[in-house]
Every structure is written in structure tokens, then in C-alpha cells.
Amino acid sequence: MYNDIVIDHFTNPRNTGELADADGSGKVGSPTCGDIMMVTIKVADNRIQDVKFKTFGCGAAIASGSMLTEMVKGKTITEALQITDAMVAEALGGLPEPKLHCSNLAASALHEAIKDYQAKQNG
């Protein structure tokens, strides 16, 4: 059902956990299936220095969280905001159609984390 890239990220997810001294954190849940994704980021010089994720969800959700963290590390805030759900799914080499909604959480959680960071900056 899943391709090798997805299976690799599922069995060896990169950057799991929660950054203790995070500059921003975002948590979103899927209204469709109840999967939950949490992303924490560390920002320096307007760049994402470090990122970690946690997931309560299926294989697709876990692999998406893992892939997202790889895609976003070192990116500027502007670049990170341009990452879309579709880009995560594409980087994973595609996902089965009924599983796409599960992968949609990763980018959203990241964008929430960035919003949180920006709110703290301005606050």
C-alpha cells in the first residue's frame, strides 16, 4: 500500500520529539480521522535551525511529519511558509488517495508553529 520512501520514514522517523526551548509550536488535528500532528521549531536569523515532530496517527501521518522536518530544516521563514501539503506528499513519492488527508497535517502544523513564533516576536 505504501512505497519504500513512506515505509522508510515510518520505520525510521527523523526528528521525532519536542524541542524543549522551542521558539514556536503548532498542533493540529484532522477532523476527518482524528490524527494529531505537533511541530516545534527553533528559529535563528530568520531561519529554521531545528525542528521536531510528534504524531498520533497512521503510517502516512507519521511519514509526513518525518518528511516535513527534513524539508524544512535550514529554510527561511518565508520559504517554510511556502511548503504545502502537496509538496510533502510528493516528496514521499505519493500516497494512496484515501491517505492524503492524513499527510495534510504536517504542513499545517508547521504553519501553526511559525504563526506562534511570529506572534511571540511581535508580542
Binding site: I7, C33, G34, D35, F56, C58, G59, A60, I62, K99
Partner: peptide, 26 residues
Amino acid sequence: VEGEALLLDLDLHGIAASSGSACSSG
């Protein structure tokens, strides 16, 4: 933990099971 993830990991360890999870049935 989510049932589909459990099933997938079990499958990778050679064990076939099923789940009442929504994500496993799509």
C-alpha cells in the same frame, strides 16, 4: 497509538492483524 500504524509496523515484522481504526479502513 493509532491502529493503522500498529498494523503497518506489525506487518513489517511479519505479523498480520486488523484494526477498528478509521485510518486502517480508509
